[in-house]
Structures are given as C-alpha cells and as structure tokens.
Design a protein around this nucleic acid. Structure first.
Lengths: 219, 219, 219, 219
DNA sequence: AATGAATGAGGCTTCATTCAT
DNA sequence: TATGAATGAAGCCTCATTCAT
C-alpha cells in the first residue's frame, strides 16, 4: 500500500494496523474522524494515493497532522476506512436492489435499468477515488479478503435470484453467470464513470449495458 | 507521475523526459536495455509501481543504477516503455484476430473461443504489471492518448467486422456494441488472470465469456 | 526562495495583541530557521556552494535534514535567503553612510575613511560566502535583478551626493563616476578581506583606497 | 600549448594531479587536446563549472569520454589547463604592455587607453569562463599560488615602471599603488565585460577607468 | 486532547571516472 | 588508441510518523 516505506509489503501479521486506534466515543471525535475521511475522499480522488499525503488530508480536513494520527494509525488505515465504507454502501445497495429484483413483478429490462442506474450513481462522485479502491493491490490483504467474501455473497444472492425468475434462462453454470452479471455491472459502471465520458455516451452506454445483460439472461 | 526535483541552479537543461536518452546502438546496450525491461516487468508485477524502485529494478536486472539511467531518463519512462510494448503487442494480436474473424468461414462460437484464448494468453504472465498498465492514471497523458486512439481504432474495426457477419444481429448502435465487446473481453480476460483463479474456474469463466458474447451478438 | 517564515501572517488565533504570550512553537521554529541560516553561512563559506551540501548544513545546524526542508524548499533558497539578508544589510549600511556623507561638515578624507572602514567590517566575516554571493551566476534571476536595482539606486544616490559636495570635482559623467566609486569600494573591500592579507597589508590597503578615491574625486 | 611551458610559472617537483597524463607527443594527440580545451571553454562559459559536465565537453569536442580521460586525469585538470593558459596569456600581454609603458614617449593617457583596451579584449570572449576562473575557490591551491606569484611579479613590474615615469607622482607606498592599478584594471575590465553592458556604457566605462587611473597616478 | 515542529529512512537521479572491447 | 557502456558514491528531497509542548 504505502509506497516506499516498505511496511505494508512486509507486514507479517498480528494486529491489523489498519484499524483505528480508538473508537471515537465522543461527539467531537466523531466529527473529526468524519472530517478526515471526507477530506481524504477528495484528496485521494484528486491526487491519487501516493501524492495524497497525510498532511494534505489533515490540512484539507482542518485538523493538525497530530490529530489525524490520533484517529488513524497510519495512512493505509484511512484508505481502508474509505474502502470499508464504500464496500458497506455497495453491499447495502446491492441487497436492496436484489430484494427488488426478487419481489418485483416488473419485467427484466426496467429492473436492470434501475439497478444499473443505482450502481452508476454509487460511483458517480470521486471517480478517482474509486479507481484507487479497485486497484486492489493497494488494499490490505484482510480487506481484500473481506471484499471477496462480500462479492461471493453477492454472487450467490444474484444466482439465487436469477434462478427464481421465470424470464431468465435456465443455465448450467448459474454461479458463473451470476459472476458475470456482477462483474459486468461493476466494470461497465466504472468505465462509464471513470472515463468521464460525455453524458450522451453515458446514456448510450447505460442502455447498451442493460441490453447486453438482457440478451445474456433472457429465457 | 513524476515530480520535479529542484536543482535550478545547476541544471539549465530541460528536455522532454520520457524519451530514451540514446538509441542502443550496440549489441551490448541492447542486451542491457532488455535486461532492464525484463526486470522491470517482474519488479512492477511483484511490488507495484510505487514500491518498485529503480534500484530494485537495476539490481534484478544485474546492472548498476547508472546503467539504468543511461537508457531511461527516469522511472516513469520505464513503465511507459513497458506500456508501449504491451500496447503494440495487444494491437498486433487484435488485428490478427480480427483478420481471422473477418475471413474465416467458421461459426461465431469457435472464433470467439479462439479470440478469448489468445487474449488470456496475452495477459497470463505478470498480471500485477497489467493491472498497473490499466491504472491509466500512472501513464503519461501522451501514451494514454495513444492508447485511447488504439482502442478507438480497434472498436471501429470490430464494429465493421460485426456488421459484415451474417450471424451477428443487426443493431442500432453498432459502435457501442463493439465498445462492449472489446471491453468485455478485456475486462474478463484480466479478471480471470488477475484473480489467479484455479484452472477449473478459469476454464468455466472462458466458456461463460464466450457464451455471453455469443448470446449478446448472435442474430 | 524560502517559503514561510511563519510569523505575522499565520497567527492562527487572533487574540488581542496586548499580551505577548509568545507561542513557544513559533519561537521554536524561528530558532531553527536561524540555526540553519547560521550554519549555511559557515558551510558555504568553508565548502563553497556545490560542496556545501544540505545535509552538511543541517548537521552543522544541529537539526534534521527534514527540518531544513520544512523551512527552505530547496538548496537554492538557502543561498537566496542569505543573499537577501546581505543585500538588505549592505543597502541599509550604505544609506546610512551616504546620509553622513551628505550632512557632515567633515572633509572628504575622514568620511571616506569611515565609509571604507564600515564596508570592510561588513564583509570581514565569512569571506568565502561573500565570494559566492558575488558570483551572481548562482543567484536566481529575480534576486539578481533586485540586487542590480539596489546597486543602481545606490549609484544614483552617490552621484547626487558627489554633486552636492563642494570639495568634489565637477565632472561630465557623474553617473559613471559614482559607478566607479561604488565598485571600487566594493571590490577592494572584498579583495582585502578575501585575500586574508595580514593586518599590516590591510591597513595600507585601506589607506590607499581612501587615497585613490580622494585623488579621483577631489576638486 | 598550455602545459609544456608550465615550468617557469609553476610547481616545484611532485606531479600534481592536474597535469596531463601524457605529453601529447604526436600531432593527432595535440589536435585532440586542443579540441577538448576549446570545447571546455565554450561549455564552461555556457553552463558553468558544475553543470559543465565532462561528457558534454567530450561531446562538444567530438571525442569520446574515454579519450578525454586519456589526456586529462580529471575534470579539474581541464579547468586548470584553461586557467594556466589564461594566466600565461594575461602575463604575456601584461609584460608587453609594460614594455610599451616603460619605453614609450607617449603621455600617460593614451598609454593607459591602450592598456585598458587590450585587457578588455583579453576577456571579451567567454565572459562566463572568466568569471569561473576568478572564482578562485575552484582552482587548486597550487595554481592559485602560482597566480598569486604571477600577480606579485606583475605588481612589482608595474611599481618599477611607475617609479620610472616622470609624469607619475612620487608616492610613499609604491607597491600598494601598483597593486591598486593592477586590480583596478583587472576588476573594471571584468565588470564591463561580464556585466555584458551595452557598447555605449562600455565605452564610457573605459574612458572613466582611464580617467580614474590618470587622476590616481598623475604627478 | 490538540498542535505542528522535528525526524530520518529511503527514493530518484547525476556524473566523474573506469574498463572491456 | 579510441570508444562508449558500465559503475556507484553521493546529492537533493519527500513524507509518513513521532513527540514535546
């Protein structure tokens, strides 16, 4: 994760050093932590990880560098916190959307449209940051593991969902199909956002994604 | 990517810094340059860009740090050279494959299998490096531009190809379809390789990718 | 150029300034900056610019290299700060001396003696550094410009002064005469100091300089 | 040219490391050495000593870096050779001019004009280089010593000369007077050339220098 | 708790010099 | 002897992190 300071590359393992030193138990602390995370989002988004220095983050957050280190044991832990946050949001959103997919009486196409729309919205802001988060190399092994598990859980949910819908074709390898659905959405969603394509292109892309999924899935 | 290192009093000389300093005119130098590039592939693959230090590269290449800088004006230029190489290989391969797609009398499915197989082979080695190369943020603007152009060229070729085949559905937005084909192949190809999935998973994934493309494209 | 000397402009909480309550932190930085400048004087004096490395300076100042770069953005800026300081001192001294020359009722000779004496005193310490400062090639263009302007200002003042004194000959090219006076004083003053001549020689030199100026100027 | 005649002015015995490794005994070698020195003049003049790298010099001279080191044991020795050359030329010129001064029947003023004119001509080309040469800190102690001796010799000659002329005032400290004459000429000559003043200014300066010397010296 | 000055390991890069061909 | 590739010590500078106040 951190570039030259070697640590993250060689971290054997014991206490995951990416966990906040203390739980912000008081209101004031919570505000500070939020300010730091907020600042980090913008700084990483704008400068990338290597050039997004801790002092830049502290300064943008309006706190001293000392305070930053009171709540985050090191730079990595800030990115990790952001990643965890994004992961949680993504998972929550996905669960919601799946719930809809499972319970709705709508046709496939409008539901997919809805799903894709929400996923785009999720990444719309701070594309630079999201690029970082998906450079998995930067994230500590543990979080990567967690993300994988979340993805696996999601894939299984999607698989179950697809199996339940009558308008989705019966296929031999449902797991893999779900894997492709999840990744296709994730990837093209990112692309459209990260490439900062013009709105017109983004709209066409969104339609095409839905179209591709539909053809891929339909009975 | 790079930063400027002061020194204004002593160095009045600023030259575009991503271009090799000299053409390796002799056999010996060519060997050295090759060794450096070779080493850089492995170092970047293993450590990532930030932690893949120039001295690590030089050391892995079995040359002195001075030799490295005799052929590459700075660290960036090494990654750039690698990227250029990969870009050229990828483009050449793609052009070949498209040629096949255009001229073959085979059905869509076996051709797609062939294409996917070759693209996987292209990224099979040094997945870490390929992750880097696709983190476009690291590459200099000029090369990014070039890569975009190459991609655009490819997309247009693919679009033309698809239009010519009778077994591919006629669609309204052929460009976007081609964009999705290119990116789907690129992305899943990367995923399968980067995730270092077990062979069995990789085979299933390959089939699924072909399947998805076929359903997406077929008339 | 040195970045923030962090005093008056950066005071974070503006309490009524009736009470000093000097922030110990500011005091501390000021001491550090002073130590660095002090050390730089001696290091440049002894080693010259090229061999006067930043780490030598930091080490002589008793601070870490990081601290040095907290207050000076690069090596150049240290020399620049020194030059600015010397320039300011020199100008202030010159203005003072000219004031005397203009208002005194003394004869030319004792006044010249006084002037020369003060100018020697100004350069007496760290002659090596002063040699550096006059190697204008090292100084950034902007400061060189400033120095030229200061010199020009001084020359004009001198010219005016000379015109006003009855015991100074009327000449055609007063500007040039002033130029020669300023440079003669500057140069021989440097020489006597830099050559590290024995005291006896220095005294003879001082007399001769006064004598030369007198003959040059007298009505 | 510089070296072989180095006897009279220079060192006693032990070969200093600033002397060419071999006497260029053949025509080809002599040409190479000349090319290197010629190139060094321009390179040092343009880039200064620190940034005037040996490879730049070799390249400008049209020889390989290896060849350069065949004739000069290190970088310093190149500057030293240049300095020796300049010293010798300066001394020769001075001796000539003094001869004129001693034997001519002309008045002081035209002779001074002539002297100053020649000294300016001596420094007119490559002012940057001459600045370097007078940054005595760069020159090895031995050569500095030699230069001092040459200067001392010159001063004594000038002193003798001045004493012999009827139109020069009789003074108490003739040595010091000669010292001032030599340095005044040297310094203002440099200034006018190094400052790259416009021609008009240079002409005025030349006249003023002559005028100052005349007033300084005249009976 | 908050502040921000101080630290120093370590990265990138240069260039005088050596050496194999 | 000429060439130019190779060497590596040493310089400048950054920035994550610590610590005194």
């Amino acid at each position: 994760m951190s570039k030259s300071r070697g640590q993250s590359l060689t971290r054997p393992n014991n206490r995951p050093i990416t966990q906040p030193l203390k739980q912000p138990s008081q209101q004031r602390s919570r505000v500070t932590v939020q300010a730091i995370l907020e600042a980090a989002i913008h700084i990483f988004d704008e400068f990338g990880y290597a050039a997004g220095t801790t002092s830049r983050i502290a300064s943008r957050a309006g706190v001293s560098i000392g305070s930053l280190y009171q709540y985050f044991p090191n730079k990595d832990s800030i990115l990790t916190a952001l990643a965890e946050q994004h992961l949680a949001e993504g998972l929550a959103l996905s669960v919601n959307l799946l719930e809809t997919l499972r319970t709705t009486s709508q046709a496939l196409e409008p539901v997919l449209h809805d799903i894709v729309g929400h996923m785009i919205a999720l990444h719309e802001h701070n594309p630079g940051l999201h690029r970082l988060l998906y450079e998995e190399g930067l994230l500590p092994a543990q979080l990567r593991q967690t993300a994988k598990q979340a993805e696996q859980f999601l894939i299984e949910e999607v698989a179950r969902c697809l199996s339940q819908r009558a308008d989705v074709a019966v296929v031999a390898d449902r797991q893999m199909q779900a894997y492709f659905v999840v990744h296709a959405i994730e990837h093209f969603t990112h692309r459209l956002v990260i490439d900062q394509a013009p709105v017109e292109f983004q709209l066409r892309g969104k339609s095409e994604l839905v179209g591709m999924l539909q053809r891929y899935l339909q009975a």
